[in-house]
Nucleic acid binder design. Structure first.
Lengths: 208, 208
DNA sequence: AGTCATATAGTTCATATGAACTATATCAAA
DNA sequence: TTTGATATAGTTCATATGAACTATATGACT
C-alpha cells in the first residue's frame, strides 16, 4: 500500500507530480519547474534530478515511455508515471502535510550558539537580517501580486506559506534585536563559557 | 581571514562552539548537546559527528589535545579549538545571522503540489497538522516555562524562535484549512492536470 | 549466577548529494 | 565569419550522510 514513502526527497515528489500531468523527459521537468519558479522556492539542485529519477524507476514508481534523439544531441528519455507512483505521491503528500517534522535550519543553529557573539555584534547582525528579510518579503509580495493576475491561487499557496513564515521571522528577529539593544536581553560571553566549563567540572566532569 | 566558512554544517558549528567552552572528546559533545536538548532541536544525527570532527581537524580549526584510554574501552581523543577555529565560528555565526537563506522544506514541497490532493482530503490533512502543531507548541511552552526557572534566557532563544515559527505556521495552516473547507479556495485536480498538459501542448510543447 | 538494559566510544559502508564537466546546437552581434 | 552566449541533455566523481555495526563496562533485577 505504501511503497517507499519514507525515503522521498523533494525531487522525488516534484518528478512524480510533473509526470502526473504528462509523460516527459528530465530536461523538460527542469524547464517546467523553472518556468513556475518552483526551483527557487524548493531549492532544487539540478544535478540531483537524474539520481532521483533513477531511484524512482528502480522502485517501479515511474517507467520509461521511450527514448528519442534530435540531431546529435544527447538522447532524451521520456518517462511516465506508474500506477504505484500515483499512489505513492498521494501517500507522501498526505503524510507530509499531516505530520510536522523538525527540520534542522542553519539559523536555529546560530541562535543556539548566539551567546558566542557579544551582544552588540549580535544586534548588528540581527538588524542586517531584518533588512534582508524585508527585501525578500517585498519581492515576494510583488511577485505574488503580479502572478495572481494570471495564476490560480492553488498554484501560489507555497509562496503564501513562505510569505507568512518570512513575516513571522522578521517580527521575531526584530523583537529580539530590540530586546538586545535595550539591554532587556544581554549576556557575557566570557563568563558563560568559563561558567559552563566550571559547572561541568564541579559536577564531576561527567554525568548530569 | 575566513577559512572554510562556506561549507559549514550544523555539526561543525556545534563542535566549535562546544570546544570553545573547554577541550573535550566527541562523546562528551554528544552528552552535552543531549543534556541541553540541542540535539533534538537541531536534528543532529550522531553518526555525522566524527566526520565533522575530521573535517574540522583537516582544516586546522581544531587540534588533538591528547588521547587516553580507560580500561579496554575504545580510545578517547580529546580535541581543543584552534585560534583559526574561534575566528571561523564567529564568522559563520555572523554570516548565518545576517543572511537569510532559502532552505528547502518538505512541507513547502507538499504545498507546491497541494492540487494533487482533492480539496476535502487536503483539508483533512491540514486539520491533522494543526492538531499536531498545537501539541508541539504546548510541549515547547511547557519546556520553556520549566527551563526558564534555572536556565538563562540567552540559552533558550532558539526555542523561542522555534515557538514563534510554530505558532505562525499553525495560524497559516489553520487559515488555509478554513479557506478550503469554506470553499473560498478550491480546485479540480483532474482539470488542472489535463489543463496544464494541454496548455503546454498549445504553446508548442516547448519554450515559454 | 545469569540475563537484560544501558552507557561508553567510535567505525564501516552503502547510498545520496551537487559541483563540475562533456558535447552539441543555435542565434546574435561584431 | 568568427566569437561568444545560451539552450540542450545528461554524466562523473569527490565528498557527505547516517543507519547499522563492533565491543566493552556497569548496574539492575531475578
Amino acid at each position: 500500500m505504501n511503497y517507499m514513502t519514507q525515503e522521498f526527497g523533494i525531487w522525488e515528489i516534484a518528478v512524480l507530480a510533473l509526470l502526473r500531468e504528462a509523460p516527459m523527459h528530465p530536461y523538460q521537468m527542469q524547464r517546467l519547474l523553472k518556468e513556475r519558479h518552483k526551483d527557487e522556492i524548493l531549492a532544487l539542485k539540478r544535478g540531483s534530478l537524474y539520481h532521483a529519477i533513477g531511484r524512482l524507476e528502480r522502485a517501479g514508481l515511474i517507467e520509461v515511455e521511450n527514448t528519442s534523439r534530435e540531431g546529435r544531441r544527447p538522447e532524451r528519455t521520456t518517462y511516465r508515471i506508474a500506477p504505484a507512483g500515483t499512489e505513492s505521491l498521494l501517500d507522501v503528500l498526505r503524510r507530509i502535510i499531516s505530520t510536522p517534522r523538525q527540520e534542522s535550519s542553519e539559523f536555529m543553529a546560530a541562535m543556539s550558539f548566539l551567546l558566542h557573539l557579544p551582544p552588540d555584534e549580535a544586534a548588528l547582525q540581527l538588524a542586517e537580517r531584518c533588512r534582508r528579510l524585508q527585501w525578500q518579503i517585498d519581492g515576494l509580495i510583488a511577485g505574488l501580486t503580479a502572478a495572481s493576475a494570471h495564476v490560480l491561487r492553488i498554484n501560489l499557496v507555497e509562496s503564501e506559506y513562505l510569505l507568512a513564515m518570512l513575516k513571522a521571522e522578521l517580527a521575531w528577529v526584530g523583537s529580539l534585536e530590540v530586546d538586545v539593544r535595550a539591554g532587556k536581553l544581554t549576556w557575557n560571553t566570557e563568563y558563560l563559557l568559563k561558567g559552563a566549563a566550571a559547572s561541568r567540572q564541579a559536577a564531576g566532569n561527567g554525568k548530569d
